[in-house]
């Protein structure tokens, strides 16, 4: 079942938007405007846009630390995501979280985490709440090939499988955990087979093919909503940059990046739209330009937004206790 032209165009825009967003973040990180370090997801746009695009707004999404794209697509205004990454007061979390901890409960972006494997068990909770409250919300948790080394993945999948919790484990296999290739740290040729031990259905998906991603997630979501339990989807993809912005990624063999760039998910969709759906290049360029403008506006918003009042550091530590400020 192929996606309609309209849907594919939407997803194309989403992917372009992610690309432009990440490029802007990279620029402002490199010139020192954005504090701290950031993890970019250029090259992985299809997996992010596809997962979020296949889910409902009421589904729980746990993007990971390389998740700007997914976060922007959950429903939070991009300019407020950008301002958060800039550490400004208008950031969606008031500057408390930054790049790695951007959350927005209103669109069920639960993406709080800089710790690999941590949300993999937290996701049990939102899934459990769906069954407890008898709602049809599913939970999608993003993880990477590196995440699978964490013991929590075992605990989570074991419990989700036993209790038939509605979880989709979205494993974006981008080949490297920082510098270590997944074949050097895992015995399986294909990581998805790891779920076989828990009798959890699993699929290997071309993570740069937006249609394949969307369809796989829709299948998994349907199973979950029917009460048939979790699914693990392994999206084969590649991150074009180093682990963080500024990492030269010298650990990659020559030619590997170039080979993956040939499989660019955006170019692929563009080709499909032009060849199958009859879109013109000018039409798509126009969409690209709109994305450029949108991101430029988001950056300007972030630049213009003031720094938070330092005293905000004391807010929201507890729901029931005000923390003492002895400064």
């Amino acid at each position: 079942m192929a996606l309609t032209k309209k849907r594919l165009l939407e997803l194309y825009c989403d992917m372009v938007s992610i690309r432009k967003f990440e490029e802007a973040v990279e620029n402002y990180s490199k010139n020192g405007t954005i504090p701290g370090f950031i993890h970019l997801s250029i090259g992985q746009e299809a997996a992010q846009a596809g997962v979020v695009g296949a889910l409902k707004k009421t589904d729980y999404k746990f993007p990971d630390h390389r998740g700007h794209g997914a976060i922007c697509l959950c429903g939070t205004e991009k300019k407020r995501v950008m301002a958060e990454i800039f550490g400004k007061v208008d950031g969606i979390n008031g500057g408390r979280g930054g790049s790695m901890h951007i959350n927005d409960l209103s669109c069920r972006n639960m993406g709080f985490n800089g710790i690999q494997g941590s949300t993999v068990v937290t996701a049990l909770g939102t899934a459990f709440a769906s069954t407890y409250k008898k709602t049809d919300a599913v939970t999608a948790v993003f993880m990477g090939d590196g995440t699978l080394g964490e013991g929590t993945c075992h605990e989570s999948m074991n419990m989700a499988a036993t209790w038939k919790l509605p979880i989709i484990y979205c494993l974006l296999n981008n080949q490297y955990a920082i510098s270590t290739h997944y074949t050097e740290s895992h015995p399986q040729k294909q990581l998805a087979t790891w779920a076989d031990g828990y009798e959890v259905p699993n699929e290997v998906v071309d993570g740069n093919d937006i249609e394949a991603v969307v369809e796989a997630v829709e299948r998994a979501a349907e199973r979950a909503r029917k009460g048939e339990g979790p699914t693990l989807l392994e999206f084969m993809t590649y991150r074009w940059q180093g682990h963080f912005s500024g990492d030269p990624a010298a650990y990659r063999p020559d030619g590997e990046l170039e080979a993956w760039q040939q499989k660019c998910p955006i170019n692929r969709s563009r080709k499909q739209l032009m060849e199958i759906h009859g879109c013109s290049g000018a039409e798509l360029d126009e969409l690209d330009a709109r994305a450029d403008a949108e991101i430029a506006e988001a950056v300007q918003f972030a630049l213009d937004s003031p720094w938070p009042d330092p005293k905000n550091a004391l807010k929201h530590v507890y729901a029931t206790v005000q923390v003492e400020d002895w400064k």
């Binding site: 068990v121 996701a123 049990l124 909770g125 459990f128 409250k133």
Partner: peptide, 16 residues
Amino acid sequence: ESAIIGLSVGSAVCGL
């Protein structure tokens, strides 16, 4: 134990 507390945290955010 991680799953126990993780599940607790996630479900608490959902109001349990």
